[in-house]
Amino acid sequence: MSVILECKSLTKKFASTIALSDLNLILERGRIVGLLGPNGSGKTTLIKLINGLLVPNSGSIHIAGMEPGVESKKIVSYLPEKTYLPDWMKVSEAINFFNDFYEDFDTNRAYDMLHRLNLDPNKRLKALSKGTKEKVQLILVMSRRAHLYCLDEPIGGVDPAARDYILSTIITNYDENATVILSTHLIADIENVLDEVIFIKEGSLVLHSPVDELREKEGKSIDSLFREVFKC
């Protein structure tokens, strides 16, 4: 098994707060990984560091052996928690944009998914609801044949029916060499699809383990374990 993500004593500070502190993490290919933690625990910071949207204060981060940069961005597909598409664009224009900039983008796959979710490619993003925009973004991100998918809160804003569809989309659309990082606090919804979980709390790694092992050892679901670890 080859390594897709390696963080070595990764530290990121903002003004007065430490968002990530001395994080060591190795993720292998072909896994679906849940990045779990309460609000403000450093999930988004870690994902932004992977995508080169932040620069670490110390430590290192490597994606398939590369530092975040043009080459790593070619193989990382990122879904931020923001609606990041220009709202004057039509859905079809957003697809063209992705097709222009990502070599691994599969236009047919994108149109196919749009069709299945009954989304009109000729609609302007401005005219779509927030949840629908999120669906469009997820479709774009999952239509790439990337090596690493970073999905930051991908199911937070959509209805449960779409949630199911999206999760099945994620599972069926990534190939065995790719790894998916799913950040969320809606654990119960995604527990069944995860291979591994990472718990982070106040910028530090609390736990990183395969889900099966964890369930066996602790004798409880990830959701209840989460509630225990992060008890307020």
Binding site: G52, Y84, Y102
Partner: peptide, 18 residues
């Protein structure tokens, strides 16, 4: 401002360009 410094920046700074 809008394309690089607002939410659209999340897209522009993660496409594979310097």
């Amino acid at each position: 401002y809008k394309n690089l410094m607002s939410d659209e920046g999340y897209l522009m700074f993660t496409i594979p360009v310097k």
